[in-house]
Design a binder for these strands. Structure first.
Lengths: 357, 357
DNA sequence: TTTCAACACGAAAACGTTTTCGCTAAATAT
DNA sequence: ATATTTAGCGAAAACGTTTTCGTGTTGAAA
């Protein structure tokens, strides 16, 4: 079990000083060609690699970014991580992930665990409980400490930081418009409760699209689903609720759902009730995941481009980190000329499949 | 922008030495009650937290574990990560993830990036390209360096380390047995190419189950799918291939597929060909993910318990890390009494849904 | 011969901890 | 009164780097 070799060991072995080894390996021309050759050969032979932790301590930066998300077993979040990891790696960063599991407390614990030197910055999406509580002090605290944050998808205006969001509002407008163009007269909305901002925005888009078409949104046709997280028979409940909703409103000929689970479940229920898709009812979901692609019939959806969001978020964060770096090594005056914060909006795109005409 | 406070700053502010501060904060009784009180109060006021990087350097361990997987946008892998994260956090560890994207080169790069002090141990699942090349030197090299590895799911005997696998063989046997019990006479197998070990084991299970029932496996009824990764019209190709397969073998009345995508696609194709599920054809998949649950009809599957695998893997790794710790601080003799390596087998479970009778 | 620059290298500080060891002064024992 | 313990604290090393600032040796210029 050969422990990794260090500069000190190389120095001792070759009978030179640690500084000489360090300089030789970085190709400093302060060291003679002879010695440099000898040291580099030795280092290669023993496969020397500088210790990351020591570097982090010295440079006071870790070259790793912390990802904090509510849940990883979720297609959308995985794609975002993939995007972040892609850019991070390309730009020489590692990613360390924490899961809040939608809990306020775990979100805080995770942040504190990572904020003590382990990471240079955060990319995160806010947990539901935090959104509900509207308590964002931990975000502001870490920003205060000089650790930048980039929020994605579930963001909030009370925190000053870079943000990446999808255009929920216009995505919803587009979706409902398509249903209208396809001849739907009574379009239902299946959505979440209001405190999840994306749900709210998509709901507003739904209403807006109807108004643009000189139609009034009918509250009867809006189904808000309260998600009871840890329930076993969640799926059945969902089906029953939707079934009840359909029976109450037999006139429904179009459905816009704010996520793909609601959408495919709606399709399933509709078919059980003897309705044909897309002839009797057309359905559009939000978030293009595996379900949409492989459902029968396959589901028309509003694509969120999760990977692109991740890439943008990573670039935003790393850009800011490097800017901070440059700033602190420069004149350092200017009273904190922090360029103002950026909000990137990712455009949505409708992916037409079999659930619409 | 208040940078995090350090021991040195506290010491200077309170006019004591760094050592005194450190001891006071750790509650050492070497320090008088007065001073301790004063220091602790000051530390709390300024929200002092020890710098993780400095601790890592000093203790020569990082309390973080590296996860290296082929792909994150994959329900099974996400559940494993969730399991790892759960245990890791509970036991005071962080997780840092790297994605190999099924590439040999990226797997190596990621390992080297993390093996230089960033992590204490690895939990990984081998990339397809690595399995194909059968080149495992990077695994052995990092183990040689004293960094333990736990492999899960896609494992290999050539590397000596702890392993967590699902009982692919018996899972397949169970699945095929169920089909037989349900009256199937001509059971097809839809599988991957052989070098992915799990595919091979599941194939063997299929054959074994038939032999147990005194039936010969008919090569005609085995469809091996070569996955061409980056192709755009992957899904269509898959459908066409399966359709061709079904037309060639109209006698098929049962299908066992080694993953859920193959299974739901098989259902879709079968229905397009006018066959009814489960009356004409019964289908069982492997890996219980979102697709299985929400397909119509919902899919009977062999559950892999990804989260449990993750938990086991994390416990295995941390146990070993702590054992190494104890060993190195103990008498340290014994010529490396490394307890032999453990292979945990996770039992599968059949989840019956609508695609079987 | 003296002076000076170039060359090649080493010592030490710094990043933030923890821990071992020593030291001083007071308290106790002899 | 002297010797010995003990309480309370500080100095310094160590973890592995990088970098700044010497310092001694050489060769050439004066």
């Amino acid at each position: 079990m050969k422990r990794k070799i260090t500069l000190k060991q190389i120095a001792r072995e070759l009978d030179v000083s640690v500084s000489t080894v360090s300089k030789a390996l970085s190709g400093s021309k302060e060291i003679s060609e002879d010695t440099t050759q000898k040291i580099q050969a030795f280092a290669k032979l023993y496969n020397y690699r500088p210790n990351n932790i020591a570097l982090s301590l010295k440079n006071r930066k870790t070259k790793t970014i912390g990802i904090l998300i509510p849940e990883i077993v979720h297609h959308f979040f995985s794609t975002v991580i993939r995007g972040i990891e892609l850019i991070a790696n390309r730009r020489g960063y590692n990613v360390i992930v924490g899961l809040s599991n939608e809990s306020f407390a775990k979100e805080i614990i995770n942040m504190e665990m990572l904020a003590n030197g382990s990471i240079d910055g955060f990319i995160l999406s806010i947990s539901k409980e935090t959104l509900l509580k509207q308590d964002y002090h931990h975000f502001n605290a870490t920003i205060q400490q000089g650790i930048p944050i980039v929020m994605f998808d579930r963001v909030v205006n009370d925190v000053l930081c870079d943000k990446v969001v999808v255009d929920d509002f216009n995505g919803a407008v587009k979706a409902v418009k398509l249903l209208l163009e396809n001849g739907c007269k009574n379009i239902a909305l299946i959505t979440t409760v209001d405190y999840v901002s994306v749900g709210r925005l998509r709901t507003q888009g739904y209403i807006e699209a109807l108004q643009l078409n000189k139609m009034e949104a009918n509250p009867q046709l809006i189904l808000k689903i309260e998600d009871n997280l840890n329930v076993e028979h969640q799926l059945e409940d969902l089906e029953n609720e939707i079934a009840h909703f359909f029976k109450l409103n037999p006139s429904i000929d179009g459905v816009f759902a704010v996520n793909e689970l609601y959408a495919v479940t709606a399709m399933k229920v509709a078919r059980k009730l003897g309705r044909h898709i897309p002839d009797d009812i057309q359905v559009i979901g939000f978030t293009d995941g595996v379900l949409s692609k492989h459902a029968t019939p396959s589901l028309t959806t509003v694509s969120q481009h999760g990977q692109k969001m991740g890439e943008q978020a990573a670039n935003l964060l790393i850009d800011r980190l490097e800017a901070m770096d440059a700033e602190s090594s420069q004149y350092m005056g200017d009273g904190g000329g922090k360029s103002d914060f950026i909000k990137v909006v990712i455009e949505t795109e409708i992916i037409k499949r079999e659930s619409t005409k």
